[in-house]
């Protein structure tokens, strides 16, 4: 029996990117939320909820870059030059965000402290925006000729990609706020619930706007979902409809959890984050329906862009052994730092 290796690797890569989004997503969201922190203490509380885990979270991004290189070199060789500037901007933003985790605490003068706090916030926001813009650029398509990128330096910059960029920012804010609901108490916890609710409203609007815009700019996506200028083909829409319906369901449930008076009802503090992941997952699966099986939308399928089968098989052995181990020890480290962060006494189990 021959395994469909490109398909398997497409799936692993998709899971890896999703892991990045839902893990570093809350890091970046909290990075942006530090902007509204009322004091240094509150800002430190916020960063304390992610400091032990952000490094591992960001590593999933290397699965995105390195995994694409390893499993789909042709796609990597097209997508990276196409997004040369947004990749550059994202990397520079992640550099500032990453070192700011440490440098914030080491700066002595108030001006340098402000600089690194600003770098932390700004780096998080710009990284989120550029990730969203690249996603938008992927959906709207890349200009390919003769198997290589043939577009301009700013092809990725369109109103549509900016819309996706802003939506991703709001989505990360929602993940970040929900993470704070899980990890904090008191005033910050109450405000995080408000932030999460506001972000959720934004996410709902953003998803709707991006979906409609996608149908409008990409007729081939519209066709898949059964939408054309004149009518709706329910035979096509119905099998795919669970994804958007699940998204709406998770949005509604999350809204209910976040609106429930605290101390009453049965909404545990871990549920909002999980529901927010549900919202993201529904959107992500919907995106998969729109783009599958293309890895360079609508130019190269995963089979056309894949590395040699012997390379994919060689890596699959490693991934099959290592990914479960990675997930296990990641879960272990998360469980180690489980529980609310309290002011003044560091981490508490």
């Amino acid at each position: 029996m021959a395994l469909d290796l490109p398909l398997i690797w497409g799936f692993i890569l998709a899971v890896g990117v999703f892991m990045y989004v839902l893990l570093d997503g809350f890091d970046l969201g909290i990075g942006m939320l530090t902007f509204v922190a009322r004091s240094d203490e509150e800002r430190n509380m916020m960063t304390a909820t992610i400091e032990p885990v952000w490094d591992g979270n960001e590593t999933w991004l290397i699965i995105g870059g390195g995994g694409l290189f390893a499993a789909f070199p042709t796609a990597y060789a097209i997508i990276m030059p196409a997004f040369y500037l947004p990749v550059l901007i994202m990397l520079a933003a992640l550099i500032f965000r990453g070192v700011a985790f440490e440098f914030r605490h080491k700066a002595v003068r108030p001006t340098t402290q402000k600089f690194w706090n600003g770098a932390f916030f700004g780096g998080s926001a710009i990284a989120a925006l550029s990730q969203g813009v690249m996603l938008g650029g992927m959906i709207q398509g890349i200009n390919v000729e003769g198997g290589a990128f043939a577009g301009g330096a700013f092809d990725w910059l369109t109103p549509f990609s900016l819309l996706v960029g802003v939506s991703v920012i709001i989505g990360y804010l929602m993940l970040g706020a929900c993470w704070l609901v899980l990890k904090t108490e008191g005033d910050l916890f109450l405000r995080a619930r408000k932030w999460a609710r506001a972000a959720l409203a934004g996410v709902a609007i953003g998803f709707l706007a991006v979906s409609l815009a996608t149908l409008a700019i990409d007729p081939s996506v519209g066709e898949r979902w059964g939408f054309s200028m004149t009518n709706i083909d329910f035979a096509r829409l119905l099998p795919l409809s669970p994804a958007p319906l699940a998204g709406m369901f998770f949005c509604a449930w999350l809204w209910r959890d976040l609106s429930m008076p605290t101390g009453q009802g049965d909404a545990p503090d871990w549920r909002p984050y999980l529901l927010a992941v549900g919202v993201f997952l529904s959107g992500y699966i919907g995106l998969g329906f729109s783009l599958y099986p293309y890895i360079v939308p609508f130019e190269f399928t995963i089979w056309e862009a894949a590395a040699r089968d012997n390379s994919l098989a060689f890596m699959l052995v490693g991934a099959g052994i290592m990914l479960p181990i990675i997930l296990l020890y990641t879960a272990y480290v998360y469980s180690l730092f489980w529980g609310k962060v309290k002011p003044g006494d560091g981490y508490h189990a």
């Binding site: 070199p73 390379s311 890596m315």
Partner: peptide, 11 residues
């Protein structure tokens, strides 16, 4: 070179 070097970096 992706099919050769890629897996090394992947590992």
């Amino acid at each position: 070179t992706g099919s050769v070097i890629g897996p090394l970096l992947g590992y």
